[in-house]
């Protein structure tokens, strides 16, 4: 435990130093990456550990984003409380949804979450307090003055996002190595056997979806912070697709892998813009090339390395002595 804390503090320190050395765009991408790590951790917990699929994690992120924005805008609370409320709203919502869809085994959770992601714009338009298509403002304010004039807004985002991501990953890794993590793995492996050992499997599955939704909600609030806005467009199906891809690419049951997955998700749009520039016809390409890259990566990785690149490496290592 102490070693783990030391590692996380060390990572945080390295991030601080890096944040001072690189330019604005990279700092902003750093904040994005921190956001993706939290979101991917929520998928690893849900899919990699408890064996359920959510195809609409973006929608759960939206719930968190709206929760945070409503708290901040209407109650004028400190920022940290808004982020806390993001977790609370999303977990409550996740618990309700999970009680219906995660309780029964089968493809129901995947379908229900996908339906939610598809219908998100319709829901946002329905309730006036969600601000419709343009959404709600989410402004965490300027960086504190004592950091000096040099300290930019993006760097402030980066600091907040990385700090939240470090805490979230620390807590998640502890949950996953606790009794709950083991129980989820047991259910995923063989739910009948787990039940014979006294595990209440449907309750544990709902719990997994609840915790995962809370994490996703936190990521949603961080995303809202980086774009200063909560709007249905930012949390669409494309985001959910990208998240599943990132999680599968990095190894769906490996928590450290989420950093790699987040890195890939940040890099894909850059590559796609560069490619689109070279190929011409920028409009069509800009709209559909990122999706194409994401889905091709997803299909290839799900077919050839469904358990993540780590597994194949391990296999090779085990094979060698036999020859």
């Amino acid at each position: 435990m102490r070693k783990k804390i030391a590692i996380f503090v060390l990572i945080g320190w390295v991030l601080l130093i890096i944040g001072d050395r690189v330019d604005e765009l990279r700092v902003y991408q750093g904040a994005q990456m921190a956001m993706y790590t939290i979101a991917l951790a929520s998928i690893v917990l849900l899919t990699g550990y408890s064996g359920q699929v959510s195809l609409g994690n973006g929608a759960m992120m939206a719930v968190g984003g709206y929760g945070a924005a409503l708290t901040l805008n209407n109650l004028g609370t400190p920022i940290w409380f808004a982020f806390l409320m993001a977790i609370v709203t999303a977990s409550l919502f996740g618990a309700l949804l999970g009680a219906a869809a995660a309780r029964v085994s089968g493809p129901y959770l995947a379908g229900t979450t996908l339906a939610l992601a598809v219908g998100l714009p319709a829901i946002a338009n329905q309730f006036a307090f969600l601000g419709g298509e343009p959404g709600l403002l989410f402004d965490v304010g300027f960086p504190p003055e004592r950091f000096g004039d040099e300290f930019t807004q993006y760097k402030w985002f980066f600091w907040i996002a990385s700090f939240i991501a470090l805490i979230a990953l620390f807590i998640t890794s502890n949950i996953l190595s606790s009794r709950f993590g083991r129980t989820w793995r047991a259910i995923r492996g063989n739910s009948l056997a787990a039940e014979l050992c006294g595990v209440h499997s449907s309750r544990m599955k709902v719990l997994a979806f609840t915790v995962s939704s809370g994490l996703a909600g936190l990521a949603g609030a961080v995303l809202a912070m980086t774009i200063s806005l909560v709007a249905p467009g930012a949390y669409g199906l494309a985001l959910s697709f990208a998240l599943v891809t990132g999680a599968v690419l990095a190894g769906i049951s490996s928590l450290p892998g989420v950093v790699l997955g987040a890195f890939i998700l940040v890099v894909i749009p850059e590559i796609s813009v560069a490619l689109a520039d070279r190929l011409g016809d920028a409009d069509k390409l800009n709209n559909y090339l990122p999706g194409l890259i994401v889905s091709v990566l997803l299909i290839l990785s799900v077919i050839f390395t469904p358990n993540g690149p780590g597994e194949n490496l391990r296999k090779h290592r085990h094979k060698k002595p036999a020859h």
């Binding site: 899919t47 990699g48 550990y49 064996g51 359920q52 699929v53 195809l55 493809p107 995947a110 996908l114 995923r188 697709f241 599943v244 891809t245 599968v248 769906i252 049951s253 069509k284 390409l285 709209n287 559909y288 090339l289 999706g291 194409l292 994401v294 889905s295 091709v296 997803l298 299909i299 799900v302 077919i303 469904p306 358990n307 993540g308």
Partner: peptide, 24 residues
């Protein structure tokens, strides 16, 4: 760990793939 979820995720990938091809 991915054996159970891989087919569902693959269909999601296919949906994205076909959508981008149609869009392009």
């Amino acid at each position: 760990p991915a054996a159970v979820v891989a087919p569902v995720i693959a269909t999601l990938g296919l949906l994205g793939l076909i959508r981008s091809i149609v869009g392009l």
